[in-house]
């Protein structure tokens, strides 16, 4: 457990450094970690002991968006949808703080404020995983190739559901960079063009053998 905790901490530090030291304005970074779905092997009922490789949530760092009053907002969500998001955040706060009905460090502010589209996208991402070869991270990993989508048309026109979902939630750029044992994904609500600087940083932060 101590090793696992240390690994989580350094993963968080690397994701944070990646975003905070970047010239561009990234909204979030996620590390999709290569894992094996042991449950899938048990469920097949055919005695097949091979386990399915998948990319599961390793860790994530959410920075948020810069306030730009002139920026065109995506389609506004309904009051009911916003209420649903707030309720989920309140419940998650309660879950994390021990189920006592309170929130993290007390106070209700965090559950009553609007949950932005990119916050919601990041939260929902925690529940997702990708079979190797499927989805944006899965394709990047199986092909050992960076996927860089910039502009809402590129996201909306992608064959990957995750990219289309990202566009709906206001992202303008999504990038998946494969590493030795997973994929680093970054998203931004601004258009960021492909550059080798980011890929070099990911390479040096996330590939231990380099």
């Amino acid at each position: 457990p101590a090793h696992s905790q240390a690994n989580e901490d350094t993963l968080q530090q690397r994701l944070q450094a990646l975003i905070e030291c970047a010239r561009e304005s990234w909204t979030y970074a996620v590390f999709w970690q290569l894992s094996y779905d042991f449950a899938a092997g048990e469920d097949d009922g055919g005695g097949n002991s091979s386990n399915t490789p998948l990319l599961a949530w390793g860790d994530g760092y959410y920075k948020g968006e810069e306030e730009k009053p002139m920026k065109k907002k995506p389609t506004p969500i309904s009051a009911a949808e916003q209420e649903h998001r707030k309720r989920v955040v309140r419940e998650l706060n309660s879950l994390i703080s021990g189920g006592g009905g309170g929130t993290v460090n007390g106070g209700d502010e965090a559950g009553d404020e609007e949950v932005t589209d990119t916050e919601w996208f990041f939260l929902v991402s925690m529940t997702q995983s990708f079979i190797n070869g499927s989805g944006l991270p899965g394709q990047a990993f199986s092909n050992s190739q960076t996927i860089w989508l910039s502009g809402s048309n590129a996201l909306a026109g992608s064959s990957c559901e995750r990219a289309r979902q990202g566009q709906v939630y206001g992202l303008e750029t999504m990038v998946c960079i494969p590493t030795e044992n997973g994929v680093v994904e970054l998203g931004s609500s601004e258009i960021i063009h492909q550059n080798s600087d980011l890929m070099d940083k990911v390479n040096s932060f996330f590939n231990p053998s380099n």
Partner: peptide
């Protein structure tokens, strides 16, 4: 929300804590 796996709890706690800090400083 019992389906949130235990392993992701740390990320979730961090996200919620930082969100609270952002809202407080806004």
């Amino acid at each position: 929300i019992p389906s949130v796996p235990q392993a992701r709890k740390a990320s979730l706690a961090r996200f919620l804590e930082k969100r609270k800090e952002r809202l407080m400083s806004a």
